[in-house]
Write a protein that binds this DNA or RNA. Sequence first.
RNA 1: GCCGAAGUGGCGGAACUGGCAGACGCACCGGACUCAAAAUCCGGCGGGCCCUAAACCCGUGUGGGUUCGACUCCCACCUUCGGCACCA
Length: 826
Amino acid sequence: MDDRYRFAEIEEKWRQRWESGDPYSIPDFSDNPKFYCLEMFPYPSGKLHMGHVRNYAIGDVVARFKRMRGYDVLHPMGWDAFGLPAENAAIKHGIPPAKWTWDNISEMRRQLKQMAVSYDWQREIATCHPGYYRWTQWFFLEFYKRDLAYKKKAPVNWCPACATVLANEQVVHGRCERCGTDVERRELSQWFLKITDYAERLLRDLQKLQGWPDKVRIMQENWIGRSEGAEIAFDVVGFDEKITVFTTRPDTLFGVTYMVLAPEHPLVDKLTAPERRAEVEEFVRRARNLSELDRTSGEAEKQGIPIGASCVNPLTGEAVPIWTANYVLLEYGTGCVMGVPAHDQRDFEFARKYDLPIRVVIQPEGAAINVRDMTAAYDGNGVLVNSGPFNGLPNKQAIPEITRHLEKMGLGKRTINYRLRDWLISRQRYWGCPIPIVYCKGCGTVPVPEEQLPVILPSDVAFKPSGQSPLVDAEDFVNTSCPACGGPARRETDTMDTFIDSSWYYFRYVSPRDEERPFNIDAVGRWCPVDQYIGGVEHAILHLLYSRFFTKVLFDMNLVNFEEPFANLLTQGMVLKDGAKMSKSKGNVVSPEDIIAQYGADTVRLFILFAAPPERDLEWSDQGVEGCYRFLQRVWRLVNSLGDEIRTAPAQPAGYLVGVNRGLRRLTHYTIKKVTEDIDERFNFNTAISAIMEMVNGLYQYRDRVPAVDRDPAVLREAVEHLLLLLAPFAPFIVEELWERCGCQGSVHRQPWPQYDPEMLVEDSVTMVVQINGKVRDRVLVPADISLSELEALILSQPRIQALLEGKRILKIIPVPGKLINIVVK
RNA sequence: GCCGAAGUGGCGGAACUGGCAGACGCACCGGACUCAAAAUCCGGCGGGCCCUAAACCCGUGUGGGUUCGACUCCCACCUUCGGCACCA
């Protein structure tokens, strides 16, 4: 019989059988326990890359494992299908974005099926389909109704290469997250979602997310950036105006020696003295034109200029000069800062540069700070000085005291500020979800009525990157009638940030074809929240924060009864080659397609799960792939060679076993335990696979070294069948084929996950390690049930140990049952 | 600068609750099979000492500490990677 492992034939055979049966389609409701296993859906960029393969291989093991454990597993797949690459392809090659996108989807779907990822394909969705984006628009209108969507004119981040604005979250180190171009600032009227209203809840509920990596929680915490402090009002001299500052250090209020406004602050223009006007305007103009990169980089020099006005410290009554400076940001706090050079490093540098006074108001315990000798601000704790009635108070205590005092006088209040800014969602691009808003001369901004949704994205559009949405020129689209008065009106031509599309897709899977509402509430109640979410850590802030925000809004709308969408999160590491992330520009890309053609999908899956634990980065190794391929061949040969022997064997080993047969049963049950725990508790697929390899090695020994007369076919049968069951989630094709060849009934993927018998793990005797003063000196085989005193006597009677103890005094003997015994001597 | 993670053979990694460091795999070395090669099978594989072996010594980034016992816990430091970064 030809017994070569012909992976291509085997995989094609089972692919076809599975394709015809729709084996992973899951009913909406049943009495089984549920498990929602979700991997982050991909952008349909063309072909799967190794990062996708890793993501979906991990998810598939979890899904298959849970299914075998008796869960109804919801395991869906879809496409994050709106986005810039499609539009860029249209500009470059003249292919319509829709065609480009749908072609890519077909190709990537084919590849996922080739990999045998066990999705319920009935539930496939694509965010660019009107049946989907209609509900994205519906959500926008709901947000609008609740004042959570608003339009405002503001300085925004503009990427000149992508010719669109970007959300704050999409600007990385002052550069565009997508293309790396330096981001510019522009003053534009744009749509925002009020995520800041949810800042506190988004922060607070991070504590609930015990199933998330700490790293991601901390990143979100930093991004939200909560800080407690006070707002304090300073009267402007000679104007009926107040300047309100935000500070986390009201205890340093007596140390204020100047005031700074952000260059864009409206009061700058108002308060500037006539003789200073020309100079100040020039300064402001220059500051505004700085790119975000130059503006925010730490090395940028602090620059400022006095505007010729002053304001009064509410506690001292002293007047201090008002400046404007590039290091103060309009968007944070109140857009102005009180200058306390003695106790804030930035203020210190600024004061030194412009020769502003420095006044110490906090002295550290047991040391005296002297302004002349200061080389840096003192931002530690201490006792207040030069602070009138508050002198002598520890500064920690002074913070609430001074705040309370200001509140009483109506000059300030306790407040909290967040670094998080509202989410800018307008994009001046074509291939996205249209914003369902109409502008009417008479009625103003009018939301498109729900029954007119979806606002269909027109297909006859000329693509030219212009800085304006291409939709501006689509006359049939733009010109419409006002839903309120029926008069002529114009549609909003910007489209939505694609992160909105992906902020709710996981709910759509529960009822993907529902035409009445975004999702079936009962079905969401059954399946959500997602039990296990798996994806790259690059989404730690963007997608995961936005999705949490959306879920909280839906909770407030009574559409869901939970506040967090993803109960458990696994962030997988990157796939590297030669120590670097695979990328076309580095030329170190390994194509999944080529590897599958060469070794088969089972080998690729196995390697990518075996080479590293999922959270860590994975170094691609052609030789490692080769090793996994060899292992599958080894399994193939082993099972085929034993097929005849086990087909006729009894299903269950009977009676009490000894020697090699008991040993093999112990190996079988030990491996079940190990693999089960590695998958279920720790996602350590690499060690689970190691354990399976060890089991295969043990089976080879049994086959080749135990004489036929001593072998128990029932034990062998149990071992082989369990080997296949344990390997099934990792290498679904080869296992299904071998399962059939062994004469087993039904699909291996429909079998219950095996249980181990704790009885089988019990050993008659154990090897005890004998240490003297913590160093291993001997090993002794002892009966497992030996008593402590017997053990001690036995160990001390060992000739080797006796020799080593010669002339020494035993201080202590520390036994670790079943493992080790340590003799402490002097 | 702040926050976080990680440093273990030639390589990827294992050691789960403080108890035999290096499982499993790769690479490499030797042997069997073969006319030969590939494949496969068997054996070896941290370093030192040694003709060989036994024995012994060293060894988980560095230096200290706790403990009968430390890759694991504590303190200080070094390196690499990731996040945030003029956030008042």
